[in-house]
Write a protein that binds this DNA or RNA. Structure first.
Lengths: 344, 344
DNA sequence: CTGAAAGCGCTTACAG
DNA sequence: CTGAAAGCGCTTACAG
């Protein structure tokens, strides 16, 4: 490969071999402007023969465009984040933009990160929980930004999914269809905007039913130990609770784990519902009733928004994508097992 | 912010404000060479006042280093890939390298991707299933490469985890500790190197026990439909099977789902074990016995290897990281519930 | 310890 | 349709 040789091909060597100027090589390779078919063929042939790879840095420097987006993610993993990233990347690569992943750790130096980013990318997508509002504001002030699943902030675009209406529907399902009377919301409405909106739907459904919603059981994070602790707290302090509306599936799953350890029946003694429809939701017993959001599409939309912004579009209205109620058995519905109809 | 003003700060404006040459600014900002404390302070102050962000493209062009790595991933999501990416990113960012994510779709134009990458990054990590061997070879030939979880290929570094010994141990556990006699391996040994090595361990344990291993049940991919189909196939064609050794957790989980639909008891009628220790493994009932690999560490190691290669180190021996048997209940062991000891 | 100057490899008006 | 030339904003020998 030429690239391994004493010297890699440059636009000069391609031009020389094709017998044209470097301006012509540049034009042909970018597919802009007109160029006679003959010239075009010569250039393409020369580039191919020399195994020419344009130097992105030189291109960026001259054109004043990085052709790269950053994605700022928290360092937690999970299906939500990878789906978001994949959706974003798919669209970005179509637009010939690179995607640079930046992980935000608690001790991240925001100023240094921003300085770095400003010299490397044209825009950034901020994933949920990746940055607090002060940091978001700084980033927004420094470059075109699209926020995902958060509260809107001036100067930034936003992509999110419907929360309140679906949460109302979910809560109503428990209240009306299953006759539960003593629901408890588990999560932190004062944290992420998503959760706040879900809690608002929880409250709205209670209002419809003429019921007074109880205060949420605050918690963040989820693992087996936390789930078990929540279960014990519920049974110690909240007698009579007959359904749990959890801020997300992870929390719901960890609580179901705790309930199993404590021998508490789901959904008979206690119904449990979540949010996100993670893959695990369908594999647990009973299957977890939850809400699905189109995360991959949200990532794709975010990339489109950024692309439009860089093409000159102003900051627009929030893009809200639809969510969908996924009924399984943890709410009290009879198990509608997937493929059950073809059972022998 | 200066960046928003009529013109952003450059190394020239910083130098002018600090009353030094651009060479001095460059040196101070990169922290190289000596520089008097006084000069240093002046430069730092000027840079800060002007909110200067060095242009990465200019830096790359002059230094002939991109200070960026690519990560080539398949477009499937899952905990494995995000953990790998996070581990890689954490180390890369410490070394001040950007991480560019590239997703490989089936219709990816390899040549175009490679041309793009050669002009953008200094090295690449290839995640499992992201590229076939021919593509891998092309990439290796074009730039420093580290392969993860695959067969070694000349010219490339490799990071993987222990498969065969642990698979032998896992199989032996079923054979010896649980007295199972009729095991079936589910997966494709002829596909990924990882799976081949696991099947080798499966065979080795049989040899130890003086048993003849049966042919694997071939399948790739996993979802509820596939799991159910596998279950039906097993019961139609493989009478007497009393344990399933699955190539990965996803497969094991989908099969457990199918077994539940068919009313087949786990582990009594059929023991099931997996590989990976995905989060779901602990939430299903019974808990899935499996093998954990240090995926995040593998990503971190891959970044270190790349860093060393770019610093001049030659391609080295494969880096093998240890795996760990995670015993839960799907193998036939009594449920060792997490935190069970603190039950009331 | 510091500066002047060349050079990295492109893109893009500007001419023709 | 094509070329000559300026310029993008840095780093890095080379001097001193």
């Amino acid at each position: 490969m030429a690239e391994r040789g004493p010297e890699a091909a440059t636009i000069y060597s391609v031009a020389q071999r094709a017998g044209v100027s470097i301006a012509t090589v540049s034009r042909v390779l970018r597919g802009v402007d007109t160029a006679s078919a003959k010239t075009r063929d010569k250039v393409l042939a020369a580039a191919s023969e020399l195994d020419y790879a344009p130097q992105n840095s030189a291109r960026s420097l001259a054109s004043k465009r990085h052709r790269a987006y950053a994605v700022l993610m928290s360092d937690t993993t999970g299906p939500y984040y990878s789906e978001l990233l994949m959706g974003f990347e798919a669209v970005a690569s179509t637009a010939d933009e690179s995607v640079i992943v930046v992980t935000s750790t608690p001790d991240l130096d925001v100023t240094a990160m921003l300085t770095n980013l400003r010299g490397r990318v044209d825009g950034v997508m901020i994933a949920p929980s990746a940055a607090d509002e002060a940091t978001q504001a700084k980033i927004i002030n420094a470059m075109p930004t699209v926020l995902v699943g958060m509260d809107p902030l001036p100067g930034s675009d936003l992509v999110h999914s419907e929360n309140t209406t679906r949460a109302t529907e979910l809560t109503r399902h428990l209240l009306v269809d299953h006759g539960r009377r003593n629901l408890l919301f588990v999560g932190e409405p004062d944290g992420a905007a998503d959760v706040r909106a879900r809690f608002a739907g929880f409250q709205a459904a209670h209002a419809e039913a003429g019921l007074r919603p109880k205060a949420p059981l605050l918690t963040h994070g989820a693992n087996e130990a936390i789930g078990l602790a929540m279960v014990d707290k519920i049974y110690r302090r909240r007698a009579g609770v007959d359904a749990l509306v959890c801020a997300n599936d992870e929390l719901a799953l960890s609580i179901m784990y705790g309930l199993r350890l404590r021998g508490i029946g789901i959904p008979d003694e206690l119904a449990v519902v979540g949010w996100d429809d993670v893959p695990t939701a369908r594999y647990v017993e009973p299957g977890l009733t939850t809400v699905r959001q189109p995360v991959r599409e949200m990532g794709a939309r975010a990339a489109e928004v950024l692309r439009d912004r860089l093409a000159g579009a102003p900051v627009g209205e929030p893009h809200q994508l639809p969510t969908e109620l996924i009924i399984r058995a943890s709410c009290g519905c009879p198990p509608q097992n997937f493929l059950a109809s073809d059972a022998p």
